[in-house]
Amino acid sequence: MKKILLPVSALALLAGCTWVKLDDAGSRVRVAYDGRVGGCERVGEVSVSVKDRVGLYERNGLKVKDELETLARNEAAGMPADTLVAKGEPHNGAQAFDAYRCGAGPRGAARENPPPAPPARGGEAETFPVR
C-alpha cells in the first residue's frame, strides 16, 4: 500500500504546480476580458496548450486557464501585440486568442497618472484610486 501511496501523492502535488512563468515582455500584454478592442489593430491569433491531465488526475481548471493565459501573453509579446481576447473557453487544455495592437503603452501607465476625480457632491461617497 505504501508503494502506491508515494507515487500517487507525488503525482497529485505535481499536478497542482504552475510550470508556466510570465516573462517581462508578456507582462506588458493585457487580456481584454470584456472583448473591447475598439480602435485596435488585429495582428494575428495565438493558440496555446498545456496538459490538463496528469495520468488519470484532472488538473484544476482555473490553474489550466491561468497557464494558458500566461503562455498566450508571452507569445503575443513577440508578434508584437499588447492585447489579447479569448476566442472561447479552454477545451482539452487548449485555447485560442485574437491578438491586437492597441498602442496602450506600458501596463500601469494609466494608473500612474489617473484622471482627476469628479467633484464630490453632498451626501455621496468619495472614492480614491488605490496605488
Results as ranks from 00 to 15, higher is better:
66 D>L: 09
59 R>K: 10
37 V>L: 01
68 L>I: 07
43 V>W: 07
87 K>Y: 05
65 K>P: 02
53 R>A: 09
58 E>A: 11
73 R>Q: 14
43 V>I: 13
75 E>G: 02
37 V>F: 00
39 G>R: 06
83 T>Q: 12
48 V>N: 02
58 E>L: 08
73 R>E: 08
56 L>Y: 15
47 S>D: 10
54 V>T: 10
80 P>M: 01
78 G>L: 10
78 G>K: 08
84 L>N: 04
41 E>R: 15
38 G>V: 13
64 V>N: 00
36 R>V: 10
36 R>S: 15
81 A>V: 10
59 R>Q: 04
82 D>V: 05
69 E>W: 07
59 R>I: 01
49 S>Q: 15
84 L>F: 03
28 R>Q: 15
76 A>E: 02
67 E>W: 04
79 M>V: 09
82 D>E: 05
37 V>T: 11
87 K>G: 08
41 E>I: 07
48 V>F: 08
84 L>E: 05
85 V>K: 05
33 Y>Q: 12
84 L>Y: 00
54 V>A: 02
79 M>D: 06
62 L>D: 14
56 L>T: 14
51 K>I: 02
53 R>V: 01
84 L>G: 02
81 A>Q: 02
34 D>S: 11
27 S>C: 10
68 L>Q: 05
33 Y>K: 13
26 G>H: 08
64 V>Y: 00
50 V>S: 02
42 R>V: 03
70 T>E: 06
36 R>F: 12
83 T>A: 08
84 L>A: 11
55 G>W: 04
70 T>V: 12
45 E>A: 09
61 G>L: 07
35 G>Y: 11
50 V>L: 01
35 G>F: 10
73 R>F: 06
42 R>W: 00
38 G>M: 10
39 G>D: 06
46 V>M: 06
30 R>M: 14
26 G>Q: 06
86 A>Y: 02
61 G>P: 10
48 V>Q: 12
52 D>C: 00
30 R>L: 14
44 G>E: 10
87 K>N: 13
51 K>F: 01
87 K>A: 13
55 G>Q: 04
87 K>I: 00
43 V>K: 15
38 G>Q: 13
61 G>Q: 12
65 K>Y: 04
77 A>M: 03
23 D>Q: 05
57 Y>V: 07
30 R>Y: 07
84 L>R: 03
62 L>C: 03
85 V>T: 14
62 L>V: 09
75 E>P: 00
38 G>I: 04
81 A>T: 10
86 A>P: 08
